[in-house]
């Protein structure tokens, strides 16, 4: 195993609880809830009243009468709804990992052990970013896939048991492969989009003596206030607001967002042509380099 692969493994070992076990637990919980819901509504004697203006469903619901646009909209909504809880867990896990990882190693002084190994500080910082921005999302995508498939099984049984139409349609109209591809592409582009924020969190993690979260919020807020007070502009606030958005993930948020919602693969790829993304990558690379430099001499709290 190469040294960098070993570093990735080391990061994975440290953070597998929030990145893997919490996701797996969420998958298990969703499965249990879905099965219980099926048992209650699908085979039970409960009367179902569908009152959804958005779905525009007739009282006697039949999926056979849905038009193609309806199918596309419902499928996208279904994929996104299933993704949301996993994304929420990932977001919190990544935030606390990036903010804590270089702080915790100073707190327990294990930084001295890691720095006694033939590994550069930049390799260490990069390995942490790769795990947070690339490897953890892969786990998320796998969990989402499982959840979507389990959800389809439950829905199929429901549709079949209630005689609501041809249940097989669900499987080929739900767009699971397309959704997985869009998530994968989305997270790849998203990793570039949020790089300035992720690397900034690591710079805070390696620099501050305590209260990393407070510092992480206070520094950009203070800088934005200073900028507004001095020049009357909102460049920093606007940049931060844009780059904490899930801009490359399909369907996230609403149309009132700062960044337009992406729907198609084309929308996602168009983000790569946005100069703002590459400016962020440049700033993120600067923050990552600075984090590595600071780690070089900042050993203890």
């Amino acid at each position: 195993m190469s040294p960098f692969a070993t570093l990735l493994k080391r990061e994975w070992l440290e953070h597998r609880a929030p990145f893997f076990w919490f996701q797996a637990a969420a998958l298990g919980l969703l499965t249990v809830v879905a099965v219980l819901a099926l048992l209650v509504t699908g085979f039970g004697e409960v009367e179902i009243h569908i009152q959804s203006e958005g779905l525009n469903a007739p009282p006697a619901l039949s999926i056979d009468v849905w038009s193609d646009p309806e199918w596309q909209r419902y499928a996208a909504t279904y994929r996104q709804l299933v993704t949301l809880p996993f994304f929420g867990i990932y977001l919190l896990a990544a935030l606390f990992m990036l903010l804590g990882t270089l702080y915790d190693e100073r707190k327990d002084r294990s930084v001295l052990f890691w720095k006694s190994l033939p590994v550069t500080d930049l390799e260490t910082v990069l390995s942490k970013l790769v795990v947070a921005l690339w490897i953890a999302p892969l786990i998320l995508i796998v969990c989402v896939l499982f959840a979507q498939i389990i959800g389809l099984v439950i829905l199929s049984v429901f549709v079949w048991s209630r005689d609501l139409g041809d249940a097989w349609q669900l499987w080929w109209r739900a767009g699971i492969p397309l959704g997985a591809f869009q998530l994968l592409l989305g997270f790849l582009i998203q990793s570039l989009w949020v790089l300035p924020v992720a690397a900034y969190l690591m710079l805070i993690s390696v620099s501050v003596p305590r209260m990393a979260l407070l510092w992480a919020v206070a520094v950009p807020v203070g800088a934005a206030l200073l900028e507004f007070g001095a020049f009357g502009t909102r460049t920093i606030a606007s940049f931060v607001s844009r780059h904490i958005e899930p801009a490359a993930l399909p369907g996230f948020g609403d149309d009132d967002r700062i960044m337009p919602v992406v729907h198609t693969v084309g929308d996602q790829l168009a983000l790569l042509a946005n100069p703002d993304l590459w400016l962020g990558v440049l700033i993120g690379a600067g923050f990552a380099y600075a984090a590595a430099k600071v780690r070089g001499f900042n050993n203890e709290l």
């Binding site: 070992l13 440290e14 190693e105 327990d108 002084r109 294990s110 930084v111 001295l112 052990f113």
Partner: peptide, 10 residues
């Protein structure tokens, strides 16, 4: 080092 610096979580 003078105190245990091996990562305790591992």
């Amino acid at each position: 080092a003078d105190t245990g610096i091996l990562p305790r979580w591992m």
